[in-house]
Simulated assay, not measured.
Amino acid sequence: MKNDAEIALLREANRIVSVILDEMGAAVRPGLTTMRFEQIAQDMCRKFGVVPAFQGYGGFPYALCCSVNEQVVHGFPSNRVLEEGDIVTFDMGVIYDGFYGDSARTFGVGEIPDETQRLLDVTRESLMRGIEHAVAGNQLYSISKVIQEYVELSGFSVVKRFVGHGIGRNLHEKPEVPNFVPRGVVDLPLKAGMVLSVEPMVCVGSPDVEILEDKWTAVTKDRRLSAHFEHTIALTQDGPEILSRSDH
Score class of each variant (00 low, 15 high):
residue 178 P to W: 08
residue 92 M to T: 06
residue 132 E to N: 04
residue 101 G to N: 09
residue 37 F to I: 05
residue 109 V to P: 09
residue 183 R to I: 12
residue 73 V to G: 00
residue 222 D to R: 02
residue 182 P to T: 13
residue 60 F to M: 11
residue 158 V to M: 14
residue 87 I to Y: 06
residue 207 P to Q: 02
residue 148 Q to K: 06
residue 28 V to M: 09
residue 24 M to R: 03
residue 129 R to L: 13
residue 146 V to F: 00
residue 71 Q to N: 02
residue 28 V to D: 10
residue 43 D to C: 03
residue 172 H to R: 12
residue 170 N to A: 09
residue 79 N to G: 08
residue 58 G to K: 06
residue 181 V to Y: 07
residue 167 I to K: 08
residue 223 R to C: 09
residue 26 A to K: 12
residue 35 M to R: 13
residue 180 F to R: 00
residue 25 G to P: 00
residue 184 G to E: 10
residue 247 D to I: 08
residue 159 V to E: 01
residue 220 T to R: 06
residue 46 R to V: 14
residue 90 F to N: 01
residue 163 V to Y: 08
residue 56 G to E: 13
residue 149 E to N: 14
residue 6 E to T: 11
residue 209 V to F: 03
residue 191 K to S: 13
residue 215 K to Q: 12
residue 223 R to L: 13
residue 142 S to R: 02
residue 178 P to V: 11
residue 227 A to L: 04
residue 211 I to E: 01
residue 102 D to Y: 13
residue 235 L to V: 14
residue 122 V to R: 09
residue 172 H to M: 14
residue 139 Q to K: 12
residue 236 T to M: 06
residue 50 V to S: 02
residue 5 A to T: 13
residue 36 R to G: 00
residue 99 F to C: 05
residue 77 P to E: 07
residue 195 V to Y: 08
residue 114 D to M: 12
residue 65 C to W: 10
residue 223 R to M: 11
residue 156 F to T: 02
residue 198 V to I: 15
residue 63 A to I: 08
residue 193 G to F: 02
residue 146 V to C: 01
residue 8 A to E: 15
residue 207 P to M: 03
residue 216 W to P: 01
residue 144 S to L: 07
residue 160 K to E: 10
residue 65 C to E: 15
residue 229 F to D: 13
residue 91 D to H: 15
residue 11 R to D: 02
residue 228 H to T: 07
residue 219 V to W: 05
residue 90 F to D: 04
residue 113 P to F: 10
residue 73 V to C: 09
residue 62 Y to A: 11
residue 80 R to P: 00
residue 244 S to C: 12
residue 152 E to Y: 00
residue 59 G to W: 13
residue 133 H to D: 03
residue 197 S to E: 08
residue 195 V to C: 14
residue 115 E to F: 13
residue 12 E to H: 12
residue 67 S to R: 10
residue 207 P to Y: 05
residue 246 S to K: 13
residue 130 G to S: 10
residue 87 I to Q: 07
residue 9 L to M: 10
residue 79 N to D: 15
residue 242 I to F: 04
residue 199 E to Q: 12
residue 149 E to S: 12
residue 219 V to C: 04
residue 178 P to M: 04
residue 160 K to F: 06
residue 63 A to E: 01
residue 191 K to G: 03
residue 82 L to W: 05
residue 191 K to V: 06
residue 193 G to Y: 03
residue 15 R to C: 08
residue 57 Y to D: 15
residue 17 V to I: 07
residue 70 E to L: 01
residue 9 L to D: 11
residue 247 D to G: 08
residue 182 P to D: 09
residue 237 Q to V: 13
residue 232 T to Q: 09
residue 195 V to H: 04
residue 222 D to Y: 07
residue 47 K to F: 15
residue 6 E to S: 07
residue 25 G to N: 09
residue 180 F to K: 02
residue 98 G to D: 08
residue 114 D to W: 05
residue 211 I to G: 02
residue 170 N to F: 06
residue 189 P to K: 07
residue 69 N to T: 04
residue 221 K to L: 07
residue 116 T to L: 10
residue 57 Y to S: 12
residue 232 T to L: 11
residue 155 G to S: 13
residue 165 H to T: 01
residue 215 K to W: 06
residue 123 T to N: 11
